[in-house]
Nucleic acid binder design. Structure first.
Lengths: 117, 117
DNA sequence: GCGTCAGTCAACCATTTGGGTGAATAACAT
DNA sequence: ATGTTATTCACCCAAATGGTTGACTGACGC
């Protein structure tokens, strides 16, 4: 276990990903590679400003990185934070599965009443 | 491909999961099994009403199911919707990986200029 | 210098969100 | 019948969200 834990803000990641426009931006970046803010904005029926704000939200969640090359801001997708979500899901599933195991055991072994804690 | 697709609202799921209180509720339900609204609420420094509202958000996203047994509402976690998120992540990762493959190919084969579309 | 292009910042607006309170409903306990 | 328990509903409120427009900063083309 190499110092994992909370490099990312799970709430921020999930909230950022919960908006359809922002998911569309992520998809664009995944298929087309780093893009400028303007290029991204052109695909949406929305002001450049709004798109800029969406990008900032993604950036804040770490889902996107900005490489400012002089006047152009190259926006690049960052997959790493997604693993934080994966891990949280995995944790949830495992404690859930654990409880089910305990229940099954209890059924086989009626001494135990099946309460977990 | 057995008629998968959009049984769940990805935005709703992600938004529901983006709140720490609601994630805590999910964790409780995973470890302790179905609980009544009151039991859940007791663990939080928050009015019963607020917790009730959080539960409704989770229910709306399909992350929780309500089995109303007379006056008691048994709240039960529902893991299925999480797979919708998994799938979206997987899709994103795969189109991302695909682009990287294309890039590598382009490097090996300098005829191609590496643009994807 | 002058205009244009790329992008952010600031202010504004409507809607949603997360919280709270108090009343209403419905069933159980006495 | 009365009270208690379990829960939602209907409001209220402050803060956050998603969108807009307009002004500003910097760098490029001429």
């Amino acid at each position: 276990m190499v110092e994992r834990e909370s490099r990312f803000d799970l709430s921020a990641i999930l909230k950022a990903a919960s908006d359809p426009t922002r998911r569309a931006i992520l998809t664009m970046l995944a298929q087309q590679g780093p893009l400028r803010v303007t290029d991204i904005a052109r695909r949406f029926e929305m002001s450049l400003n709004s798109v800029s704000k969406h990008i900032k939200v993604l950036e804040n969640a770490g889902l996107v990185r900005r490489r400012t090359e002089w006047r152009e801001h190259l926006i690049e997708i960052q997959m790493d934070p997604l693993s934080a979500v994966d891990e949280w899901f995995a944790g949830l599933r495992s404690i859930w599965a654990l409880r089910l195991d305990a229940l099954e055991t209890a059924l086989e072994d009626p001494e135990d009443d099946g309460t977990v804690s």
